[in-house]
């Protein structure tokens, strides 16, 4: 009897002890670590990459390349920007970056007066170097240190060549651009136009559209109405491709049309994969990111002074669409 009681109590104690320890282990285990503090006197270079189109595949790649390079260089880089071409927000971000006295600003060029004022006056006031990336703004207007990105003129030419190769030497081509053209778009247009001009049988129609989907749809309708014989479309702004295609396919088969664009839109890659897009210019966003950070650091460390003001071009190539899906 006595032994039984003792054994029962002992085993009870053991079981409860086990559960208590188990519970205590859970209660006192601190798996949350507060972030380590940074010494007050330690300050590394701070770079900001600012874009108008956050979270598009193209800019994601630019950001990734820049971040990789920044990590390699041991500097802090943050990607700021606006979503969906919100210019006001974009400019505000630039202003905040300048007021925050970051060490360098890598920015998607915007060919507007406000942007130029910011880069010319504010940046110069704080002595902050600005490098444009992907889209350029001429140096004399923006006082940027340099440009890293594709040669858009060459890209336009390359695309036109591809078009001629596929469509043949005759036909009507619609070139769709923005109402207010960016510097880079002007160069693309110039490249396309010059290239197509060599073929007398090819007639080029230039059309303009606003930014919103409705405007693009309207512009497309307009083109199709006025030029029913059109055979090919070149969208200078890659973001126009989606709505444009929708409108075309609403009216007719997409297949007979030759559709060309660039890769810096949000939908182009997937459209290309689906075969709806016949070809596009593939740029090198990672390279842009990497090289821009590298150049910025070279500038900040006085390794290369001055930077090439004409800019550093990155690779471009033609990517053909997959075989069209019915």
């Amino acid at each position: 009897m006595r032994k039984k009681v003792i054994i029962v109590l002992c085993s009870l104690c053991a079981v409860l002890g086990f559960f208590t320890l188990w519970s205590a282990e859970g209660a006192f285990r601190s798996d949350w670590q507060l972030p380590a503090a940074v010494p007050a006197d330690e300050e590394s270079y701070r770079l900001v990459l600012i874009t108008q189109e956050l979270e598009t595949p193209f800019w994601e790649k630019v950001g990734a390349g820049a971040a990789a390079q920044a990590e390699q260089q041991g500097v802090i880089l943050d990607v700021w920007g606006s979503y969906g071409n919100n210019r006001e927000d974009f400019l505000k971000q630039i202003e905040i970056a300048l007021h925050s006295k970051v060490d360098g600003v890598i920015v998607q060029g915007l060919d507007t007066e406000e942007f130029k004022v910011l880069t010319k006056e504010k940046a110069a006031f704080y002595g902050i170097p600005v490098i444009t990336v992907a889209n350029d703004v001429p140096v004399e207007e923006s006082l940027r240190k340099t440009f890293v990105g594709s040669d858009h003129y060459a890209a336009g030419k390359m695309l036109a060549h591809q078009l001629v190769k596929e469509m043949g030497g005759s036909g009507q081509v619609v070139v769709l651009g923005d109402v207010e053209q960016q510097y880079s778009q002007q160069q693309r247009l110039q490249g396309v136009a010059e290239s197509l001009a060599q073929h007398a049988e090819i007639s080029t129609v230039y059309a303009e559209s606003g930014k919103s989907d409705e405007e693009i749809v309207a512009a497309t309708q307009n083109i199709l109405n006025q030029h029913p014989t059109v055979e090919a479309f070149i969208a200078l702004n890659a973001n126009h491709v989606g709505p444009m295609m929708k409108e075309i396919s609403r009216r007719a088969q997409l297949e007979p049309y030759y559709l060309y664009s660039f890769d810096d839109g949000s939908e182009t890659a997937s459209l290309l994969d689906q075969g709806k897009l016949d070809a596009m210019i593939q740029q090198s966003p990672e390279q842009m990111g990497e090289q821009s950070v590298e150049l910025m650091m070279q500038w900040l460390r006085n390794e290369v002074v001055p930077l090439e003001s004409n800019g550093y071009t990155t690779d471009i190539r033609i990517v053909k669409g997959a075989v069209a899906q019915p």
């Binding site: 940074v38 007021h99 006295k101």
Partner: peptide, 17 residues
């Protein structure tokens, strides 16, 4: 700290500005 070094440094400079 490690997490907010960039933001807080910017913040501090913004205040300076």
């Amino acid at each position: 700290n490690v997490e907010n070094e960039f933001a807080l440094t910017n913040y501090s400079h913004l205040i300076s500005s």
